[in-house]
Simulated assay, not measured.
Amino acid sequence: MRLTSKPVLCNYYVTYRCNAKCSFCDIWEKPSPYITLEDVHQNLQDLKRLGVQVIDFTGGEPLLHRQIDEMLGMAHDMGFITTLTTNGMLYPKLAKRLKGKVDMLHFSLDSSEKEVHDKGRGVACYDFVMESIAIAKQLGERPDILFTVFRSNLHQLEEVYQKIVLPNKLLLVINPAFEYNAVDTGEQLTAEELNYLAAFGKRKSVYLNDGFVQLRRDGGNHVADPVCKAASTTLVISPENELVLPCYHLGSKSYPINGKLYELYKSREVEELKRQEGRLPECEGCTINCYMQPSFAVEVNKYFWKALPSTLKYNYMKGTWKRLLPFNN
């Protein structure tokens, strides 16, 4: 049973450029412009009309955009829940400008050991994450630690939790690594490791969407009976101001927005692509978290029920549910 036909999330790529070179990501390899403030203003109005509730300003490294604070402020003032993930390298310089504009602020950290984290990110950014945590707390912000889990760093989860998350009164967001294109993420987690991860997600101050674990146990999305609703739940806007379908990682089609995002999203051609969501050959076995999470939220099935407790837990801890109340919009 489908709960809503409206999209709930926009992954807004402000640039593909990045000041890190993560081994499990290929975005930083792409040449890229930066989005314009004028386009963001127009698109946010259309996203509001379409029913979108969450704007994820992403990249690349989103803090490379010199007007990122203005974009976040604009979206926040319009009643959107805003989210941003950063490697922390630029946050100390921009923290005061960003204060109060990001509802879900994530600092990426994949190890409690400086050398291990920096090696995976291809640049020395561990110290910047530690500095960012301290500054954010001083400003009254409530950042999360986003831990991307591979088989190679699973053993680091406990130390990050004990040494960094709990002492700083943060929230640990567990992000199981996913494969896409030719990006190498190493061996997939075993059934035993998935069980460990699921148990870890039940701890205090930890968020793990249990739907992610279940999907991996089931072998990912299956085109014969897809759980993925990427194109109908999530809009992807590129730095070139194009609507990308069915998702960023496949990106089989892109359409210039030209100030008419609402009309474009409602067009016959886009509707046709939306009907193919999760059914393309490349969709078989997919476990991409940023598109599965909204997919779990709009249709009542076993993944909906798996995801619901952890989703409620996170939103309660972060207080983001308050942003969805009618008087806040």
Rank of each mutant, 00 (worst) to 15 (best):
M74G: 04
S295A: 06
K169Q: 15
K274I: 14
I237H: 09
H41F: 13
R323D: 10
T83E: 15
N315G: 11
E115V: 10
S108T: 10
F57C: 06
N175V: 05
E192F: 08
R279I: 01
L64M: 10
Q276C: 11
K202Y: 04
L166S: 09
L197S: 11
F147K: 04
L166I: 15
V183N: 03
A177V: 01
L172E: 01
E159I: 00
K48H: 14
V244W: 07
K169V: 08
N209C: 11
Y316V: 14
W305Y: 13
E272M: 12
V298H: 04
H222W: 07
L146I: 11
A124G: 09
S267P: 02
V40L: 12
N11K: 13
S295R: 04
R142S: 12
S232E: 14
M1S: 00
G79S: 05
N209T: 03
E269I: 14
S111V: 02
V14M: 04
E299I: 00
V223Q: 13
A20M: 14
E284M: 05
N328M: 15
C125M: 12
L280W: 08
Y12S: 07
E70D: 14
T233Y: 04
C247M: 02
T82P: 01
C283V: 05
E158M: 07
D110S: 08
V40C: 12
C18W: 08
A231N: 00
E179Y: 13
P31N: 14
P7L: 01
K318C: 02
Y207V: 04
E29T: 15
L171A: 01
S232T: 15
L139P: 11
T311K: 11
P326K: 10
F107A: 03
L64Y: 13
K229A: 03
S111A: 07
A224Q: 14
Y16G: 00
I164P: 06
A182M: 10
R17D: 09
F212K: 10
S238H: 01
Y262V: 05
S111C: 01
D56M: 10
A230Y: 11
A136N: 04
L63R: 03
V173D: 12
A198K: 05
S267Q: 03
H41M: 12
L197K: 12
I133G: 07
L37P: 08
Y161W: 09
L37S: 15
L250A: 13
M74S: 11
M78P: 13
Y34P: 00
E240C: 08
L194P: 01
N209Q: 07
N241Q: 07
G259Q: 01
T287R: 02
G259P: 05
L171W: 09
Y12L: 06
K137H: 05
L215R: 01
L72Q: 03
R121H: 10
C247I: 06
E29D: 13
P143T: 03
T311Q: 13
